[in-house]
Amino acid sequence: MRIPCPHCGERASEEFSYLGAADPVRPAADASAAEWHDYVYLRDNPAGVMREFWHHVHGCRRWLVVARDVRTHAISAAVDAGA
């Protein structure tokens, strides 16, 4: 795969590492055990476009959120995760 890093341009996927779904939001510190369980363990795992974390480890070292169709691997967007 080729991932369009918003900082570095299009780069081969082996420059990046992967963390999975970007949608789950880290609960507040006092959230219930169930919320924490869901955040860390449950995944939608959709067969379609997924927003996911990629880390440009061998580049700018920024965490990115990439929108990618996991059926075709077509990438429709890639933005800095902090943006």
Partner: peptide, 17 residues
């Protein structure tokens, strides 16, 4: 070492930007 750095970058860039 590599994993900790990536972990801290995640903590900063994503969780505590």
């Amino acid at each position: 070492a590599p994993r900790v750095l990536a972990h801290m970058e995640f903590a900063h860039q994503v969780l505590r930007p």
